[in-house]
Amino acid sequence: MNILSPSTIQQATRLLNEHDGAIVMAGATDLLVNWPSNLNAHERTYLDISSISELAFHSFSENELVLGALCTYWDIIDDPCAMQHTKLLVDAARTVGAVQIQTRGTWAGNIANASPAADGVAALMALDAQVTLTSATGSQTIPLDTFYLDYKKTRCSHDQLITDIRVPLVRPEFASFVKVGARCAQAITKVGVAIAQTDANWRIVVNSMAPVVKRCAAIEHLLNSQTPVHSPRDFAQAIEADLAPVDDIRSTASYRKAVLARVLYHELAPCCPWFSKNGISKNGINQ
């Protein structure tokens, strides 16, 4: 394996330019899973950015939170400001792995790894985060919700490095992060949804429900238009329009869709006056 260890962003972007296909490594919590037996992974070139001190920060200003590429989940969990201004991120961070992962895993890595199950990405996307991509020739900022093109395909080109993530500090009127996994802690998400509402505008972002973490246009429309909702079933059509989850080793498509509908209904019913509250009959949640 080749490893490149720059100590500045400038060096890093130059090396990325020189080494086509080099894989950026920060906390390495995804890259090193089953490392000894993952022989193909040893053949590659890695760009280890973990020593670039100018990337190891996060900062709150009046209008935004900026997460440097080396900012970890734990950095946010541990910051009282984050709890105050971006609780959604804290809630999501706490569901990622366990403490041992939270201290190493980075928000930027979660974005770059492009797993459809990424919890951190869902929360960031719900808060309308922007991603800064830097190459040797300059920087570019793109909305996170346009970052993913397809399964494991992103708008980040081989010579670009995610240098920071910008989260606008527009305090949502309602925000919620729900993760459904196979156990209470340390689980890969089976159904995940991050919800944020600002000025009657809903952002619904799901993970593990599609090839990429994505916003759900039909569900957002259903909410923005204040279409009456009487039961979880009333989300079914929008879910079908937005998402095509799969059966895999961790769950089934039908479970994922049903749970998403139920979670959306129960999360939103208390704060959406146009929902009728009798969606749950004694004879079952989905009748």
Partner: peptide, 15 residues
């Protein structure tokens, strides 16, 4: 009794 199994025991999905 995984959640998926309990779901199948309780009510038809997409009823």
């Amino acid at each position: 009794l995984t959640p998926e199994r309990i779901m199948s025991l309780t009510t038809p999905i997409h009823a």
